[in-house]
Structure formats: structure tokens, C-alpha cells
Write a protein that binds this DNA or RNA. Structure first.
Lengths: 145, 145
DNA sequence: TCATATAATGAAAATGGTTTTCAATTTCCG
DNA sequence: CGGAAATTGAAAACCATTTTCATTATATGA
């Protein structure tokens, strides 16, 4: 069982940001708290709203900048969906992919996608060199059924 | 060998649009010609520029509306990439996925992704019901190596 | 073939999300 | 504690996309 990216605690995230050379300001801590404690992909405005519940003078611009820091520190990743591509969610440790509930937006990570056979076959047929892949599953979670 | 979505000719696309109830206007035909004759994911502005080379008074707004028609007719699909998600490309027939060159943007479709074992395992572990998936490969094409 | 209802067009304006600018504030290192 | 430098928030700028609306073009039925 791989580590659950949603159970990582705030302190670890903050020390990771610290190691990346960020100043641990109040607004950045608030955005980090929101992102580390949520299992859904959140848009910048959603982060903004959740953040202001904790720290009312948080600015939307700062949310954008903080998400950028979290993303380049590898703590958060962008999520692409049919409805839009401006969602951010806690990034997995190692090689994992997302499974997203189409009803409530809740997400899980899963491992063990072995597509190496597929990749070799596609490489042989297309004469491309494959460098990476995106795989995402969509469905309905237990409580939404 | 599945049919190559890039080799479908213009006439077929136009009759498909006709069957969908669209009026075959000059601007729509131009956008259709651009989209059916290109192997790269094109942004609306790129379509606009390529289209005006054929039909100078084409408007950008019409490009957006035409892409929407092509998309709902299933002839074109949106492409999601790290650099942005506003690309459109000829849609595959049946179940196929994209392989995109990171250098030149050229794309190929491939078939034969069998992820049913993976899906059953993930369903059992997560208690989600999986309804669909996204799979996309990234690499370097033959001429870019 | 022609007339006509109506879908489609293009230009301008509106919209909405994201980025830039900049002066004021906060952090953190010495 | 002091001060250099990163960070912040507000306003403005920016850019892609959508809406509005008067005009034009298409397809259909007389």
C-alpha cells in the first residue's frame, strides 16, 4: 500500500516549502493548510474562499502564487477534467494516478498501472520514443452511488 | 489496423455536419478543411490563422463556434497538454488514444490499451465504479529525434 | 426559380480567469 | 534588533472565450 498523499500532515508540507527556500508567511501557510487537508481538486477561487475562512485578508493573487510554489515543490498537482483544467490537488508520492468521482469530485490515487507492454508496442508501430503518460480514471465513489 | 482519423476526407466531414443539421456555410467549410487536414492539435487562434489563409474574412468567433459544432459532431476533440488545454484535433474512430510529440506537436492515435485488469483492481480497492478513462502518451516523433 | 424563415456570421462589447505592477508589509538572517 | 529581500494585497492589465446584435447566407417549400 503506497503512502496516502491526503494523509500527509501540514508540518511536512511546510518544512518542504521551507527547504525550497520559501518564506513561511501566514498566507502561504493558510493555502498550504487548505490544500493539504482536502481530497478534492480545488480551483484557485475555491482555495481563496476556503482560505479566507481561516485568514480573511488573504488575496486571490496570493492564492495563485502560493499554488505555484506548492506545485513547483511537487506538493500539489494540476488536475485536468472535462469541466476544466484549473483544479489543484495534493500530489502523490511516486508514480500514482487519479481516480475522480464525477458526482462529488472526491479523488483517490492508485498505483500499479503497468503499461510497459502497451508502450513498447506503440513505440514500435509509431517510431516515436515515449517519455511519459497521463492516465486518469473517472467514476462514481462509494457514497455517491 | 484501425482507420486513420487523419486520412478521413473533407467530404465525409461535411456530410456528417450536414446530417447533424448544420448549414454548410463557407466559414464552417473552411474550419472543417483546416481541422480535417492537420495532424497537430491546433488552438482556436491557429485555426483562425490557417483559415484566413483560405478565406480572409473568417472571424475568430466563428472559429470558436465551428469547433464547437465539429466537437459535438464527434469529428474533433479537445486535447489536454501541460502547456494548455485549448487544442483541437481530429477525433479517432472508436476507442483510441493520443500519442503526442513534445517537440513538434504532431500526434498519432493508437489502440489496444487494455486496462480492464487495472480497472477491476482499482474498483475493488477504492469501492468506486469506474466509468471511463483518459490515457495519453507523450514522446518524441521520428523526425524530431 | 424565387421567396422566405431562420441559422450563421462578424464586429464590438462583455466576461472571467490569470498575470503584472507597485507600494507597503513581513520574514528571516546576521 | 536592524535591515535586505521576499512576499503581500489592491488595482490595473491582459488574454482567451462568450455574448450581443444587426447583417448576411443558406436551405426549404411554394
Amino acid at each position: 500500500m503506497p503512502p496516502d498523499p491526503f494523509s500527509v500532515d501540514l508540518e511536512e508540507w511546510l518544512s518542504c516549502l521551507d527547504r525550497s527556500g520559501c518564506r513561511l508567511t501566514e498566507p502561504l501557510k493558510v493555502v498550504t493548510e487548505v490544500m493539504s487537508g482536502n481530497r478534492r481538486a480545488l480551483s484557485p477561487v475555491e482555495v481563496y474562499d476556503l482560505g479566507r475562512a481561516i485568514y480573511p485578508k488573504l488575496g486571490l493573487v496570493t492564492v495563485y502564487r502560493s499554488l505555484e510554489k506548492l506545485e513547483s515543490a511537487g506538493l500539489v498537482q494540476r488536475v485536468h477534467q472535462v469541466g476544466g483544467c484549473n483544479g489543484y490537488i495534493a500530489a502523490p508520492q511516486g508514480h500514482q494516478h487519479l481516480l475522480i468521482c464525477q458526482i462529488c469530485g472526491r479523488a483517490e490515487y492508485f498505483t500499479g498501472d503497468d503499461i510497459s507492454d502497451l508502450v513498447s508496442r506503440v513505440e514500435a508501430q509509431s517510431h516515436y520514443t515515449v517519455q511519459g503518460h497521463w492516465l486518469q480514471l473517472f467514476g462514481v465513489c462509494e457514497s455517491c452511488k
